[in-house]
């Protein structure tokens, strides 16, 4: 069972103070920390668990600048066997489709049974790369996957639907699954694995090497801005007792409690 996992290095923005840069099209990143995208971390763990159960290899692929190698090494330390970084140099701006195209050109020459991605990147929130990559490769896919059970040539997966429903699917391999958070419990990397990962080679490919000089850019960011404050927003002022009383009144009047 050879598994390819696509991972992205993203800035931690959930609890950070975010400022738009002077171009108006990106955020200032100097004061942000970076880590593996949350659902990609679950995809990575799922791949390692599947490898532990059934043998085979795990290959990591990430598109981005040299700093991505920190994230890749973390994945190698957790148990991935090999890694490729596709340098984003010369690609310019990338959207979900363009990233999927780069990944397709990188992956099509590899031998694989399964591709795992996260279900959404926490920075741009597009959720496009997984399904688009599957379409470009001409393989079936499932998104928001919460369970993976491999059989010979097939996979039984469960995925989340709206309204609390789960959908069970049987999918022919090779296939791509976009993994939902919470599917497993991501592991720590051990000191010895960290040590070994430091010495592992990360293959770096450029546009020429993957035969894609200019990925197709179909969307372009016009500008970023904080959402305008809604008209119905009400900021409660005063001490804890006063505001909690007022809050309870509002809840009651709206029939929430």
């Amino acid at each position: 069972m050879d598994i390819v996992v696509c991972i992205k290095r993203v800035p931690e923005t959930a609890e950070a103070e975010i400022k738009v840069d002077s171009s108006g099209k990106d955020i200032l990143k100097e004061r942000l920390t970076f880590d593996i995208n949350e659902s990609d971390n679950y995809a990575l763990e799922e791949a390692i668990l599947l490898k532990e159960k059934r043998g085979g290899t795990v290959t990591l692929i990430s598109v981005g600048p040299p700093e991505c190698e920190d994230t890749i090494r973390m994945g190698l330390a957790k148990g991935a066997d090999q890694a490729i970084r596709v340098s984003n140099e010369g690609f310019g701006e990338l959207d979900g489709f363009a990233t999927a195209e780069i990944l397709k050109n990188t992956i099509q020459d590899l031998s694989y049974d399964l591709i795992l991605t996260g279900c959404m990147a926490t920075d741009d929130g597009y959720s496009q790369v997984g399904p688009t990559l599957a379409e470009l490769l001409g393989i079936p896919h499932a998104v928001l996957v919460t369970k993976v059970d491999l059989q010979d040539g097939n996979a039984r997966v469960e995925r989340e639907l709206e309204g609390g429903l789960l959908e069970a699917l049987e999918i022919k391999l090779p296939a791509l699954f976009a993994i939902q958070t919470g599917i497993n419990e991501p592991r720590y990397a051990s000191l010895i694995a960290i040590r070994r990962a430091a010495a592992k080679e990360i293959k770096v490919l450029n546009a020429q090497a993957i035969g894609l000089e200019r990925p197709t850019l179909r969307t372009r960011v016009e500008n970023l801005f904080p959402p305008p404050v809604g008209k119905r927003a009400e900021i409660l002022k005063g001490g804890a007792e006063e505001t909690s009383k007022r809050l309870a009144q509002i809840y009651k009047s709206k029939g929430i409690i």
């Binding site: 942000l32 593996i36 720590y188």
Partner: peptide, 19 residues
């Protein structure tokens, strides 16, 4: 250095770097 530490501490480190 390898992000292999308790998740509850990560936002603390991020926030100090951030603000």
């Amino acid at each position: 250095d390898y992000g292999s530490y308790p998740d509850t501490l990560k936002p603390v480190v991020s926030k100090i770097h951030n603000v």
